[in-house]
């Protein structure tokens, strides 16, 4: 079973040379720590920065330079700032190559729910609806089951949707799943996790073809 860091590490393998990448809050933010350093990648944060760098050194933090998680950040050479409308313009126009975000539920047709639990938790969708409606390539980082042990990989989402038919890939503590026109296809399993373990933890149907390799790190 993977830790959150491992999930981020596995997703980092999907980040290719020349990509502009938007990282959501939570596990996705960690992906930046594991991207190979021999490739050129720029991170976009939807509050209005491209070319995001690591956290500042203590004492050098600037209230005017933050990411979408409201964390103080730095910028790298080549960085730029822009306003919110422009930022979502570049997202809608598909200039951003890869979007990585968290989810509460994902369904086998690629629907995603991650912004609201009716009557309980209403924090808002932030930029997630714009991102999932526009991005070509969307990878979800999430836990396979909730705290009660119930699957979050479903035939149909039960929570209010963030977007429809948009998720391309899901990486959980147990598996890598691809969303195909026929449903979830099991691509890789976490080290030490069996195909049966994954089937047991998954409410949706899984397409399983041949031997399923273990993830490599």
């Amino acid at each position: 079973m993977l830790s959150k860091e491992d999930i981020a590490k596995r997703i980092a393998q999907e980040v290719k040379n020349g990509y502009y990448v938007n990282l959501g809050i939570g596990i996705p933010t960690l992906v930046a720590n594991y991207v190979r350093n021999d490739i050129s990648v720029e991170f976009q944060s939807e509050n209005g920065v491209l070319g995001m760098g690591p956290f500042p050194f203590e004492g050098e933090e600037d209230a005017d330079i933050i990411n979408a998680g409201k964390q103080t950040i730095t910028t790298l050479p080549g960085a730029s700032f822009f306003d919110s409308a422009f930022s979502f313009g570049m997202i809608r126009a598909q200039k951003v190559d890869l979007t990585i975000l968290g989810a509460m539920e994902v369904s086998e047709n690629g629907d995603i729910a991650n912004w609201k639990i009716p009557g309980k938790m209403v924090k808002g969708m932030g930029g997630a609806m714009d991102l999932v409606a526009s991005a070509e390539n969307i990878i979800v980082a999430m836990m396979h089951v909730n705290k009660a042990g119930e699957s979050k990989i479903l035939k149909k989402c039960t929570l209010p949707l963030t977007g429809v038919g948009c998720v391309k890939k899901v990486v959980t503590e147990l598996a890598v799943l691809e969303v195909t026109p026929k449903g979830f296809k099991l691509i890789e399993r976490a080290p030490g996790v069996s195909v049966e373990d994954i089937i047991k933890a998954t409410e949706a149907n899984l397409i399983i073809e041949g031997d399923i390799p273990e993830m490599k790190f």
């Binding site: 500042p56 050194f57 209230a63 933050i66 409201k70 103080t72």
Partner: peptide, 12 residues
Amino acid sequence: EKRIEQRTVRQK
């Protein structure tokens, strides 16, 4: 005041 919501830093 320019309050910072999430002060995230790294060590030198």
